[in-house]
């Protein structure tokens, strides 16, 4: 589903973010991407979104080589990817329902579909009572649920989450992870970048560890740290 082949990313200021990364994630997998800040997790996410171009190597997502996608088809590529961010990236002047509806409207879906689907998906993430609340009126965990609902409303085959629990307390984080787990269970490929050690240890999923831009460990049913 997502393949990195000898990918190196050097930023303009000569900072090496990724070095010769090889990684394959198959359809339906749940993968944690772990590592300290600056280890290259976010760079990988942004490369998958084609927000950045690799300096060397190639990436393919969903069977398509990203290097071959012309700029004007990038939006289409992104519609196959649900994105969740640490800072939620919700629009503050839109209600929860409007934020979710926005993602559908942007991709040109029918208003009728939007009206039926938005309450369903918000119900699914446990926010059926907060349809008309603005992000400012929601807790961090609730905002992240809205953001997950937005990422998943069009049922993309892949969902990527960059530090989804980074701003949340451990209890709330569990709920968010359970939600991602459920989404993965429906068949969605889920890639989560995190340095939430406990969470990774509890979930026992595949763990890919990055260190200074290199993959130093890739273990099925792994933990956060190197286990002896």
């Amino acid at each position: 589903m997502i393949y990195f082949n000898n990918v190196t990313k050097v930023y303009d200021n000569d900072a090496v973010a990724l070095e010769d990364v090889n990684l394959g994630i198959e359809a339906g997998e749940f993968v944690f991407l772990v590592g300290a800040s600056g280890s290259g997790k976010s760079t990988m996410m942004r490369l998958i979104l084609k927000e950045l171009e690799p300096s060397r190597g190639n990436i393919s997502v969903n069977g398509v080589k990203l290097g071959a996608i012309p700029r004007r088809y990038v939006p289409k590529h992104r519609r196959n990817l649900g994105c969740v961010f640490q800072d939620y990236k919700l629009l503050p002047n839109k209600t929860a329902a409007e934020n979710v509806a926005y993602a559908m409207e942007v991709t040109g879906q029918k208003r009728r579909a939007v009206r039926t689907k938005v309450p369903q998906i918000l119900d699914l993430v446990g926010l059926k009572d907060k349809l008309n609340a603005f992000p400012g009126q929601l807790s961090g965990g609730e905002q992240q649920r809205v953001s997950i609902a937005r990422a998943f409303v069009s049922q993309p085959p892949i969902l990527i989450a960059d530090e989804p629990t980074g701003n949340l307390d451990p209890e709330t984080s569990v709920g968010i992870m359970q939600l991602l787990h459920r989404i993965n269970h429906i068949g969605t490929t889920v890639l989560v970048a995190t340095h939430d050690r406990e969470m990774v240890d509890v979930m026992r999923k595949r763990v890919v560890a990055l260190e200074a831009g290199r993959v130093v460990r890739d273990k099925v049913r792994g933990g956060y740290a190197n286990e002896v």
């Binding site: 979104l49 590529h77 992104r78 519609r79 990236k89 629009l91 926005y102 993602a103």
Partner: peptide
């Protein structure tokens, strides 16, 4: 920020 979000959810230019 709004534009950024639009782009990330796959809105065309």
């Amino acid at each position: 920020k709004e534009i950024e979000v639009m782009k990330l959810v796959g809105a065309s230019d």
